[in-house]
Computed example of a mutant assay.
Amino acid sequence: MTGRLVADPSAGLADPLARQLVAGAFAAISRRYVLARHQIAAVLLDADGEMHVGLHVDAMVGRAAVCAEAGALAAARLATDAELVAVAAVRYPKPTEPPVARIVPPCGLCRELLLDHAPGLAAIVPDGDQVAVEPLAGLLPHKYVGTKWPTELTIRT
């Protein structure tokens, strides 16, 4: 907890799904933000209506860092086999930045990871003053498809 008042990016969102997920991610990062350690929280919603939260865990060696979406995916898979339907992530501002948290789309690596495990996943992404709920596959038009898993587990286009 930082003690400063930061604007909640879910306030005023018209889409109820986006508002729910963004509010969950904002609440998590507001509680757990630590400069240079935990900057983003993500929420994955499953088909049963449960939210699974993940926290960005930074590291001295950047490659060892873990994205919030990966943490949320691990939490979801520990809790349920239910289909994952939507993801949202919120970045908390550094003390030197204006006190406004931002909705952020999954990075490229997380897009690949999430689509491996949830091919029909929707993502909450910034769209001007509002958000769009878009198929994650649309944010990664040329996803890598290997031969490690059966075809039904890979992305459908």
Score class of each variant (00 low, 15 high):
residue 84 L to R: 04
residue 130 Q to V: 03
residue 111 R to T: 03
residue 117 H to E: 11
residue 89 A to T: 04
residue 72 A to F: 03
residue 63 R to G: 15
residue 18 A to D: 00
residue 115 L to N: 00
residue 10 S to E: 08
residue 28 A to W: 09
residue 85 V to C: 05
residue 60 M to F: 10
residue 123 A to W: 05
residue 29 I to H: 11
residue 120 G to F: 10
residue 117 H to Y: 14
residue 100 V to G: 02
residue 124 I to W: 06
residue 57 V to G: 10
residue 95 P to V: 00
residue 57 V to C: 09
residue 55 L to S: 03
residue 72 A to L: 04
residue 109 L to K: 14
residue 134 E to V: 14
residue 4 R to D: 15
residue 114 L to R: 05
residue 8 D to E: 05
residue 20 Q to S: 11
residue 12 G to H: 12
residue 101 A to M: 05
residue 22 V to I: 09
residue 15 D to Q: 12
residue 41 A to D: 08
residue 101 A to Y: 09
residue 89 A to W: 10
residue 69 E to I: 07
residue 84 L to P: 02
residue 140 L to K: 12
residue 8 D to G: 08
residue 114 L to E: 12
residue 101 A to W: 12
residue 49 G to N: 01
residue 50 E to K: 11
residue 119 P to D: 04
residue 22 V to E: 14
residue 91 R to T: 06
residue 98 P to L: 12
residue 89 A to G: 15
residue 82 A to R: 15
residue 129 D to K: 10
residue 120 G to T: 11
residue 141 P to Y: 07
residue 85 V to Q: 01
residue 59 A to M: 07
residue 27 A to H: 08
residue 131 V to W: 07
residue 97 E to F: 00
residue 35 L to Y: 06
residue 40 I to T: 15
residue 15 D to G: 01
residue 60 M to K: 05
residue 8 D to V: 09
residue 113 L to H: 07
residue 116 D to T: 08
residue 94 K to V: 06
residue 14 A to T: 10
residue 110 C to Y: 02
residue 44 L to T: 02
residue 39 Q to F: 02
residue 3 G to R: 00
residue 40 I to K: 08
residue 42 A to P: 05
residue 124 I to A: 07
residue 65 A to K: 07
residue 102 R to A: 13
residue 92 Y to H: 15
residue 51 M to K: 10
residue 2 T to R: 15
residue 57 V to N: 13
residue 17 L to T: 15
residue 70 A to R: 14
residue 132 A to I: 04
residue 32 R to C: 14
residue 127 D to C: 09
residue 52 H to N: 13
residue 11 A to P: 02
residue 27 A to Q: 12
residue 33 Y to F: 15
